[in-house]
């Protein structure tokens, strides 16, 4: 008998083992849901899959009677727009600040302590301020995501910049490069895959800020919807929405990983 630490399941077994917990959860849910609905057909806590399907169909495939919109898609579009804008702004600001503070000691001196301090402010505590300053519209939601995520990206990029071996910067200088050329040709190309990675890591926080701000002040969006229907205990809407958000998050992450892999092959094959 081999030691447990040396025992690696074969590939198909690994896949099966990976799917097992999901199947188990679904079965447990179905049994529990059936049991509750048996006792009380109006139970709202654990709706059956057909109930959830019906709710989703109503929201996704039938135009809303009030506005004529397909609510589910409208929510998805609004949320993704906010998230995308917030993350894009955060990534550009974070990348610029991280790059400058990492590459130029004269930018590091005034900016790094400020950056550290700002990154310690809990962004959600700023939400009321954002609502006061920017109003309840789109701007404050996008701003929350941007403000919440940018410091993390900036610090991550700063760290990555400082981790690029000094030998490379010296080498570039012996090849006659100016500071600007070093930034453009040596640092930025090597930092882009790291930026993608930082964005992937910060998407979780991005979703958190998005849903929080939509829950508080919004008229559409995925977060808005689940908090709205909570009042009616509509688990048949909330659960599919949560699953959909999870799926979107997974897809975004996967797309970014693919983007990084196809644009920066050298990075993923161990070329630093």
């Amino acid at each position: 008998m081999k030691r447990l630490i040396n025992l690696t399941p074969s590939r198909p077994v690994q896949v099966l083992l990976g799917l097992l917990p999901f199947a188990l959860l679904i079965v447990i849910y179905m049994v529990a849901s059936d049991a509750r609905l048996e006792i009380n057909p109006d139970d709202k806590l654990l709706p059956s899959f057909s109930q959830m399907g019906a709710a989703l169909e109503r929201l996704a495939l039938e135009p809303s009677r009030r506005t004529g919109e397909y609510v589910f898609w409208q929510d998805t579009l609004s949320s993704l727009k906010r998230l995308g804008m917030g993350i894009a702004i955060a990534a550009s600001i974070g990348f610029t600040i991280g790059l400058l503070t990492g590459a130029l000691p004269s930018a590091h001196a005034p900016l790094a302590p400020l950056l550290t301090t700002i990154s310690l402010v809990p962004p959600l505590a700023l939400l009321p301020i954002l609502f006061i300053v920017f109003g309840l519209g789109e701007l404050s939601k996008v701003a929350l995501i941007a403000i919440g995520v940018a410091p993390f990206i900036a610090r991550d990029i700063q760290r990555c910049t400082l981790e690029i071996p000094r030998e490379q910067l010296i080498k570039a200088q012996t090849l006659g490069a100016s500071s600007w050329q070093i930034i453009v040709r040596v640092l930025i190309p090597q930092l882009l895959p790291r930026l993608i990675n930082a964005v992937r890591l910060s998407l979780g926080a991005g979703w958190l800020f998005l849903i929080a701000s939509e829950a508080i002040a919004s008229t559409d969006g995925l977060g808005y919807r689940i908090f709205l229907v909570r009042r009616y205990m509509s688990m048949d809407v909330i659960l599919p929405y949560v699953a959909w958000i999870t799926f979107l998050a997974f897809t975004l992450d996967w797309l970014l990983a693919q983007l990084s892999r196809c644009c920066f092959t050298w990075h993923h094959q161990g070329g630093a």
């Binding site: 071996p165 030998e167 490379q168 010296i170 080498k171 570039a172 200088q173 012996t174 090849l175 006659g176 040596v186 190309p189 090597q190 920066f264 050298w266 990075h267 070329g271 630093a272």
Partner: peptide, 20 residues
């Protein structure tokens, strides 16, 4: 007091650009 193109250097490692 700054590296320039009159003096070339080869280190033991990290001398080349990994992204090129």
């Amino acid at each position: 007091d700054e590296p320039d193109q009159s003096r070339g250097i080869v280190f033991q490692q990290y001398s080349v650009f990994p992204h090129l």
